[in-house]
């Protein structure tokens, strides 16, 4: 019998600290992509909030409450991370995403400058505050970028892109550190 060994998306590659930025993996075990049907967004939001404390987020925003999160991840879609979803039959299309996403957290004074090398957005704290999220590119790769703290971001991509994401972030951080 083959013995299967569970591996996280960035297994063996993280954490690492380069200059003033630390990269750590965020393991997303349970998550769902929730896409409300036309006109059902308010109902979905109410049901989610009753169950998990977080409703359906507005565009470009993340909602958090006591371990639950809902992150806007595109037109009419949110990634909901919580213990369990309420009944959403007839209200939304739901896709299980646990284990499907690679997420890396950047911490430190250089986190912003590291992402500035990769993401074509203004991520300075004056315009991109805690709880703000954006769908954009990291290098050539579609990604969700979310500010989770004053000097902290979380970047999410499809799991198949985990190694590329780590490589891109590592190269950007090294380049930045070399210039310091």
């Amino acid at each position: 019998m083959v013995k299967l060994i569970a591996q996280t998306p960035c297994e063996g590659q993280l954490p690492m600290t380069i200059g003033d930025v630390t990269l750590t993996e965020v393991v997303i075990q349970t998550a769902w992509n929730v896409a409300p049907f036309a006109g059902k967004e308010a109902d979905v939001s109410k049901a989610l909030e009753a169950q998990s404390g977080v409703g359906f987020p507005a565009a470009n925003r993340m909602l958090t409450k006591a371990g639950s999160r809902s992150i806007w991840v595109g037109a009419g879609r949110a990634l909901v991370q919580c213990d369990g979803l309420p009944e959403l039959s007839g209200l939304a299309a739901v896709t299980e995403q646990g284990d499907a996403i690679a997420a890396v957290r950047l911490d430190g004074p250089a986190a912003e400058a590291t992402l500035a090398r990769l993401v074509p957005l203004d991520l300075r704290v004056s315009t991109f505050k805690r709880g703000h999220t954006a769908r954009s590119f990291v290098g050539h790769m579609a990604a969700s970028v979310t500010r989770v703290g004053a000097e902290a971001f979380e970047v999410m991509v499809m799991r198949s892109m985990a190694r590329t994401l780590v490589h891109e972030l590592e190269e950007a951080a090294k380049g930045l550190a070399a210039r310091a």
């Binding site: 470009n60 595109g74 074509p120 957005l121 954006a134 769908r135 954009s136 590119f137």
Partner: peptide, 10 residues
């Protein structure tokens, strides 16, 4: 309309 002004590469 969702994300605001973005570069053409997106």
């Amino acid at each position: 309309p969702h994300c605001g002004e973005r570069d053409r590469r997106e």
